[in-house]
Design a protein around this nucleic acid. Sequence first.
DNA 1: AAGAGATTTGACCAAACGGTAAAAATGATA
DNA 2: TATCATTTTTACCGTTTGGTCAAATCTCTT
Lengths: 221, 221
Amino acid sequence: MTQISASSENPAERRSKTRIQKENETRILLAALEVFSENGFRGATLDRIAATAKMSKPNLLYYFKNKEEIHVALLTDLLDVWLAPLREISPHGEPADEIGSYIRRKLESSRQFPRESRLFANEMLAGAPHIGDFLQSELKQLVDEKAAIFQGWIDEGRLAPCDPRHLLFAIWSTTQHYADFSVQVRHVLGLQPGDVSYYEEAVSMLETLFLGRLVPPASTD
Amino acid sequence: MTQISASSENPAERRSKTRIQKENETRILLAALEVFSENGFRGATLDRIAATAKMSKPNLLYYFKNKEEIHVALLTDLLDVWLAPLREISPHGEPADEIGSYIRRKLESSRQFPRESRLFANEMLAGAPHIGDFLQSELKQLVDEKAAIFQGWIDEGRLAPCDPRHLLFAIWSTTQHYADFSVQVRHVLGLQPGDVSYYEEAVSMLETLFLGRLVPPASTD
DNA sequence: AAGAGATTTGACCAAACGGTAAAAATGATA
DNA sequence: TATCATTTTTACCGTTTGGTCAAATCTCTT
């Protein structure tokens, strides 16, 4: 009798994953992240991903049925990483604390996951063909929610009057810039390719910028 | 990949250009801007550029000898546009005026040339293979020069203490974000594809952010 | 109107591309 | 160790890609 296995054709979707399966999927996704984040979806090739993963192309396609499936897998993982820092913003904290720690979380995310950030940036530049729905629904909803918190603080005079959603844009852009444009940052600062020492200066700059006086002096009533 | 340089084989570089030549080069560069800015260098294809320019591929290659030459032509034009707003910063004006008008110039540039901005962003994400030299020499030099102006203002107490070069990074990222991530901006704000009405809110936000209190109240002595 | 030069096109090429089929090799298990 | 499922490889396919070539057409000048 033949063993009944999970319905899907792809080994990645069987009941339980083999050791080899887990290892290889990790290797592939890591290699794909490298290639997609540098060249975008269209600019990436399966040959390059396979070469980076030190694996033959057919073997790679044994684990993911096509190029797009790899890309989708990466983006799916990415979106959680992307949203996590935003989710943590609480209406109960002090505006300066909440915004300050959000900036630090985003900067830390940029430093730890620069390729993920560039993958996201590439998807945006291409017009978000794969995650347009996510932007319109999940992200928009979360932004509206957090913007309401900011608006509350503004109404209470604890935050300078501004458009909360544009404040978020400003935080996103300044923090992600250090991952997405790291080449430019390094060249302008005269640093070596691998050097990411500028992140400390970045924290300082962004705290000055966003907290220096954007948030009025705390009034403990 | 080769850095920007001028070569000498195609009709584009003969003594004087024909009417047809000028027209077609413009058409090609416009089409190429569209395609390169969306998909990056590797993701763009000559077929798509030719189709967008409503021209046969061999005809396109009659004007530019290969894919790279088109890309280089675009980048060369771009760099002037990119630097122009920065060049205008003067040591003689008031910090608030200079920074404020720089932000407005950069935002205006984002609104007028979003594809150029995305072209630049794509080149950065790919690791700046074509304009690495520019970043290290011309841009770095100009940044150092303008950073010195900022530092002067800081020393005089006319600008909050901060790293001037990171202040520039913050201005670049926030302003370019509206071109590079316009899809995200529109989706989050719930706007239609073509709508760029958010630029007015952007000016307001960024002036609040950078001038609200980053620059101390003017002391007219 | 004719000739010369500029422009355009269709036919083509080799390499790279995304992907498939089937056999061979390996691993797990009894 | 025999067996069976899993994994890997070899050989391949059709399409797309960057680019060439020579012939055909068009444009401008005289």
